[in-house]
Design a protein around this nucleic acid. Structure first.
Length: 584
DNA sequence: GTCCTAGACTCAGAAACATGTTA
DNA sequence: CTAACATGTTTCTGAGTCTAGGA
């Protein structure tokens, strides 16, 4: 698989925003493909945000310890240090003139020392825990809980009159007042009524049946809203000194809770702060949006530590942990149940930890394996597209869709409990619009329009007769015929793939290739797209004369293609929109 | 078996935050 | 020089996928 050049595109299905976050692990070599660093320079270079055109465009914010320490140590932390500007400039000058760098033992603060300590652990060289287990020993400080509610005493108005609320009631009222009236929940005509209905039902339950507050329309949250805005401004206007103190407090908490000791080495914890209570912010038309998310007590939290580890003290006075587990088969450090959908939530290690690194590695290895088998797989579903059994034809058609259009597999959802979103297997007839432009004749266009994960709109017109879907073993036309057949005589709310479930699809995929599931196709296709695009840029004549900034631009362009493929999008904020409008 | 669902983990956008840049 | 703005980064937590284990 190294020969197809695939292996060095690891981690690429994480375009745009995600890439920066993962920059840490980028530096890590994949032990499975030691020759995978060929392209690393161009990719890493483009990830670097400090573009000063200096001799070494490869500098990363954080660098793998052993490989780079001598070369980079002196300037490694430089951007983070509160050094006066002048000094910075001097150093930079010196760097370009003088390549010789002393291996200076730099003064590091505690956070930097922690970070170095973590990076010195090369998990890909370390011994694996015994089969089935993910760790031998695990110790951590448990979950940090938010402060108890501190009442502000500002009264909301009901029917024009100020109402005195108990702290619990006031807290709930404040959750609502904190919502931006123009934001994605209340600013949207479709979601606002759901949000308000759910919130107000829960609010009234807290108030009790006898309470004066009965009608949402008579509620005026403005006093509280104003108060919150004032607080925000006050918070923003604090002096540098106060800001520093705040940061130190936060750091303090980070040192207390932010690290775990796993098999003798330090790992970063991802989410050590317990989720505070609030109004549930479901995406899209979530039927439970606005419901009150309760405060979680330590009693509801289960911790997972090794048997011999010190049990972390519970920091909430008068409370204790709900349960202690010693389960080395799972990664989580803590878990609790949320009250909205009664689902388990976890405290886990951070993305840069060895656990996540390992699963990323196995994810990309699977994608690479798929790369080597893709022709076989495409041949296999091509044959099945014309199979006699409906089940087989639906399976093959769905695989085409997942492979070519990069849709998610689309499990079943209960629309009473969750937003009505779909993926491949859950597509309904109403989501397909045949011949959207009324071209007639042998038009083979279908417009796909549905809400996918996170209620993100997918709207694309696919021309199944287009060369991109018909040339070189493409099967566009057959897929089109199948779609037509599957939708025939069905009502709009019926499923297109009525005889197919995600588990059937995955079971089948596993028979073709070990470890293959539907989601691997997205990883594979995203990685392949990025790689192909980068190769194209690298192939242009002027590539070597491109400035680092131009290379970054090229890299971002390639990444944009991935985002388009995966239908990744960020909603443009109002401020940005108006900005763009004023620009013209 | 085979269905079903709780549990565990990845993925992903919004919001908060930090830092750099410009008027 | 400062404030406002832009842009990049991190945190937060909701929303998927997939599996294992029990009825």
């Amino acid at each position: 698989m190294g020969s197809d050049g695939f292996s060095d595109s690891s981690e690429e299905d994480v375009p745009l925003a995600k890439l920066k976050r993962k920059s840490n692990s980028k530096a890590r070599p994949d032990p499975a493909h030691s020759s995978s660093s060929k392209k690393a320079s161009s990719t890493t270079a483009s990830r670097n945000s400090t573009l000063n055109g200096s001799a070494n465009p490869k500098k990363r914010p954080r660098v793998k310890y052993e490989e780079d320490e001598h070369e980079h140590d002196s300037d490694l932390e430089q951007p983070r240090r509160p050094v006066p500007k002048k000094k910075k400039v001097k150093q930079e000058k010196g760097k370009s003139n003088n390549k010789i760098k002393k291996p200076v033992m730099k003064e590091m603060d505690k956070a930097e020392r922690m970070s170095h300590a973590m990076q010195s652990f090369l998990w890909w060289n370390a011994e694996e825990p015994k089969a089935g287990a993910q760790w031998h020993t695990m110790e951590h400080a448990g979950v940090a809980f938010p402060e108890a509610y501190d009442p502000h005493g500002v009264k909301m108005l009901y029917d024009g009159q100020p109402v005195t609320l108990s702290p619990v009631e006031e807290e709930a009222a404040t959750f609502f007042a904190a919502m931006d009236p123009e934001g994605m929940h209340l600013g949207n005509q479709k979601t606002a009524p759901i949000f308000i209905k759910n919130f107000f039902a829960d609010f009234r339950q807290i108030l009790g049946k006898q309470h004066v507050i009965r009608d949402f329309k008579k509620c005026d949250w403005e006093p509280i809203r104003r108060h919150l805005n004032e607080q925000k401004i006050i918070k923003k206007a604090i002096s540098d000194k106060e800001r520093k103190v705040n940061k130190e407090t936060r750091n303090e908490a980070m040192f207390q809770f932010g690290y775990a000791l796993v098999d003798g080495h330090i790992e970063k914890v991802g989410n050590y702060n317990m989720e505070p209570p609030g109004a549930f912010r479901g995406r899209g038309e979530h039927p439970k949006a606005g419901k009150l998310k309760h405060r979680v007590d330590p009693e509801q939290v289960f911790l997972n530590v090794s048997e011999c580890a010190r049990v972390p003290p519970c920091t909430v006075p008068g409370h204790a942990w709900g349960e202690l587990r010693h389960d080395p088969q799972v990664q989580w450090l803590g878990q609790w149940k949320e009250n909205i959908n009664n689902q388990v939530k976890y405290m886990q290690l951070a993305a840069q930890s060895s656990f996540k690194g390992k699963s990323d590695r196995s994810k990309y290895n699977k994608a690479a394996l798929l790369c080597g088998n893709i022709d076989k797989i495409r041949d296999s579903y091509k044959k099945k597209l014309k199979a006699k059994s409906l089940e087989a034809r639906q399976l093959a058609t769905a695989m085409w869709v997942i492979d070519k259009l990069a849709l998610r597999v689309g499990g079943e959802k209960d629309t009473e409990e969750e937003a009505d979103t779909v993926g491949c297997c859950s597509l309904r007839v109403e989501h397909l619009n045949f011949d959207p432009n009324d071209e007639g004749g042998d038009c083979k266009e279908i417009e796909l329009e549905f809400l996918g994960k996170d209620s993100m709109l997918f709207k694309q017109t696919i021309d199944f007769g287009a060369t991109m879907y018909t040339e070189n073993n493409g099967m566009g036309e057959q897929v089109y015929e199948n779609f037509k057949a599957f939708c025939k005589k069905k009502k709009s709310h019926e499923e297109v793939f009525n005889s197919l479930t995600p588990s059937m699809l995955n079971t089948h995929l596993k028979e073709i290739m070990d470890g293959l599931t539907a989601k691997v196709f997205r990883t594979y296709n995203a990685s392949k797209t990025l790689q192909d695009e980068l190769m194209k840029t690298e192939a242009i004549k002027s590539f070597h004369s491109l400035t680092p900034a131009e290379k970054v631009a090229e890299y971002n362009n390639a990444n944009r293609d991935v985002a388009i493929l995966c239908n990744h999008q960020k909603t443009v904020s109002k401020a940005q929109t108006t900005q763009l409008e004023t620009i013209g």
